[in-house]
Simulated scan of single mutants.
Amino acid sequence: MSIRERYHNKGAPSRLRTRLLAYLALTKPRVIELLLVTTIPAMLLAERGIVNPLLIVNTLFGGMLAAAGANTLNCVADADIDKVMKRTALRPLARETVPTRHALIFGLATSIGSFFWLWWTTNLLSGVLAVATIAFYVFVYTLLLKRRTSQNVVWGGAAGCMPVMIGWSAVTGTIGWPALVMFAIIFFWTPPHTWALAMRYKDDYKAAGVPMLPAVRTERQVTFQIVIYTWVTVLATLALAPAAGWLYASVALLAGVWFLAMAHQLYAGVRRGEPVKPLKLFLQSNNYLAVVFCALAVDSALSLPLIFR
């Protein structure tokens, strides 16, 4: 075997691995984590106990396909601004490590696959909700709102709320009021979570011409909005207590106080003119949501009712 052949044989697995990692990056795996954090608790609450493990696996897989498709199509639509922003400059389409046409086909295939998978393994409603989520995220948020309004993540964040609806519908075949409250929790949590990150990278958004709120408003105005949405988020978590139990209610209250304290601390620092670290709130907001929904999962699995239920 020649040196060239040896090099070619050794390089092939490496190139394949690089290509696979590029396609994985298109799906934004960290964003998909939200699916895992919120879908299972929603399914457990819908059943008020232990759900068939196969149903959970099928729902999660279908949801992951939907999220992968939506995120990939988002990367295709945002390739131009991803090249400008430092935070996103390493994404596959910004670096041109994946052809745009291939990414589009991959995004469409995973999106269509999610519908048929959920329809086949759960029910039609779950499949339709997945398709609606993808369409909303790509056409309403990415193509219509993101580059036109500073309130883009307020309305666009609705796409990130859909995993709880899909999880609930997979178990019940319907959409109950607790699913709508869980939707509201994530809907109101998304702006403070996203704006805290955008405060850190506001220059990126300015360079890309994306009117994210921190790029077009003062820090004081942004942090005030963060405080308002944080309060509404915490109130929404408490509104779910009657459908859950005392364990969830206790954790939601304590975690809510902690989340509010962080938001008010950020706002107070900006008012005093002190250097602030909004990225800390962004990271801790992930922990807050995880704690609340994990408590909901445990509470639902153990079926611990509130005293007044």
Rank of each mutant, 00 (worst) to 15 (best):
144 L>R: 05
89 A>K: 10
158 A>V: 09
256 G>N: 15
48 R>S: 13
13 P>K: 07
146 K>R: 03
176 G>S: 11
135 A>L: 05
118 L>Y: 04
56 I>V: 07
285 S>Y: 08
42 A>H: 09
301 A>R: 00
244 A>G: 04
149 T>K: 04
85 M>H: 01
46 A>I: 02
210 V>R: 11
148 R>S: 04
149 T>V: 10
72 T>K: 03
255 A>K: 07
116 F>C: 12
188 F>K: 01
156 G>C: 07
308 F>V: 14
195 W>H: 15
21 L>M: 15
17 R>V: 07
261 A>D: 10
64 M>D: 01
133 T>R: 01
215 A>R: 03
186 I>K: 00
138 V>E: 05
74 N>L: 07
287 N>L: 09
295 A>H: 11
29 P>W: 12
82 D>A: 02
1 M>H: 11
72 T>C: 06
182 M>W: 08
94 A>M: 13
150 S>F: 08
81 I>Q: 00
87 R>L: 04
267 Y>M: 12
108 L>E: 04
78 D>N: 07
39 T>M: 08
162 M>A: 06
160 G>P: 06
270 V>T: 14
33 E>C: 07
103 A>C: 12
264 H>G: 00
245 G>I: 02
263 A>F: 02
258 W>L: 14
4 R>I: 12
253 L>R: 04
261 A>P: 00
185 I>F: 00
180 L>T: 05
33 E>N: 13
250 S>Y: 01
249 A>P: 04
113 G>H: 15
177 W>E: 13
202 K>L: 13
190 T>Q: 15
114 S>C: 13
6 R>V: 06
130 A>I: 14
152 N>M: 12
55 L>R: 15
173 G>T: 09
90 L>T: 08
132 A>T: 12
16 L>H: 04
254 L>V: 09
297 A>M: 03
160 G>L: 09
259 F>T: 03
283 L>P: 02
120 W>I: 13
279 L>K: 07
188 F>N: 02
305 P>G: 10
115 F>K: 09
15 R>V: 14
41 P>L: 14
52 N>W: 06
176 G>L: 03
29 P>F: 08
99 P>H: 14
295 A>W: 05
24 L>M: 10
167 G>T: 13
141 Y>P: 02
171 V>E: 02
204 D>E: 05
198 A>I: 04
168 W>D: 10
179 A>S: 08
254 L>H: 05
4 R>D: 11
100 T>Q: 12
206 K>V: 15
174 T>W: 02
